[in-house]
């Protein structure tokens, strides 16, 4: 899964999708994941990155990451290419 190109992510968590005109806000964890996606990391790597970065168990990390990625997809911010 990749973040669509042209999507701007600011440090304070503001996201603008010029394709649709929608804007969003995400929290720090959200910014962290989005940046990893921009860097084209795999889901497995992001999962590991999350656990390295935060005090976090594998089950919660997996559940939260899946939920977040499904929301990104739902909002048309990602592609599966």
């Amino acid at each position: 899964m990749k973040v669509r190109k042209n999507i701007a992510i600011s440090e304070n968590g503001f996201i603008f999708n010029p394709l649709t005109g929608d804007s969003f806000s995400v929290n720090e964890t959200g910014v962290f994941i989005l940046q990893k996606l921009k860097e084209e990391e795999s889901e497995a790597t992001i999962l590991q990155n999350l656990m390295d970065e935060y005090e976090l168990d594998a089950h919660t990390a997996e559940k939260d990451l899946n939920d977040f990625l499904s929301m990104l997809q739902n909002y048309q911010l990602t592609t599966n290419e």
Binding site: S10, N12, G13, F14, F16, S23, S25
Partner: peptide, 11 residues
Amino acid sequence: DISEFQQISTM
């Protein structure tokens, strides 16, 4: 500009 909207929305 959207940056102004961003400013009021996030801050």
